[in-house]
C-alpha cells in the first residue's frame, strides 16, 4: 500500500510499460537462445509462462492497448506450444512477431514519455 501511495499514476504507468518491455525482451532472448539449443526445454517453457503472467499482471490497469496486449498473449502462447512440441524451426515466426510487438510497445513508450 505504501508503494502504491508513493507513486503518481504517471509513474505507475511508466513502470508498467518498462516492466512489460523487460519481460518481452526476456521472452525474446529466451526463445532465441532455445532455438539455438542454448537452453533446456523445461526452463524455456517456465520462463515463457512467467513472461506471459508478468505481462498480464502489468496490464491490469490497461496501460497497453487491447489489440497489442492480445497479440502479445497469442504470440507467447504460440511460443510455449512450440517449445512443448520441440518445434525449433517454427518458433522463428513467433520470434519475428514478438519483435514487431516489441517495436510497437517501444513507440507507445516514446509517445507517453517513458524513458529507460
Amino acid at each position: 500500500m505504501l508503494v502504491a501511495c508513493s507513486q503518481s499514476p504517471q509513474d505507475k504507468q511508466g513502470d508498467a510499460i518498462t516492466t512489460t518491455q523487460s519481460w518481452i525482451a526476456t521472452a525474446r532472448m529466451t526463445g532465441e537462445a532455445w532455438q539455438q539449443g542454448k537452453l533446456p526445454d523445461a526452463y524455456t517453457e517456465q520462463t515463457l509462462i512467467k513472461s506471459q503472467q508478468k505481462i498480464v499482471q502489468q496490464n491490469r490497469s490497461k496501460v497497453i492497448p487491447s489489440p497489442l496486449s492480445e497479440q502479445l498473449q497469442q504470440t507467447l502462447r504460440q511460443m510455449i506450444a512450440d517449445v512443448q512440441q520441440h518445434r525449433r524451426n517454427t518458433i522463428a515466426s513467433s520470434l519475428e512477431k514478438l519483435s514487431n510487438e516489441q517495436h510497437q510497445l517501444e513507440s507507445l513508450a516514446k509517445n507517453r514519455g517513458v524513458q529507460r
Binding site: A25, T26, R28, A33, K38, L39, Y43, R116
Partner: peptide, 22 residues
C-alpha cells in the same frame, strides 16, 4: 542492451548463455 531488467532469477539465468552457450 536487450532492455531486460532483472526482477526474477529466471532473467538473470540468461546472462552467461551469450558467452558460453548451453
Amino acid at each position: 542492451p536487450q532492455g531486460i531488467q532483472v526482477d526474477s532469477y529466471e532473467q538473470a539465468a540468461l546472462m552467461l548463455t551469450q558467452t558460453f552457450g548451453y
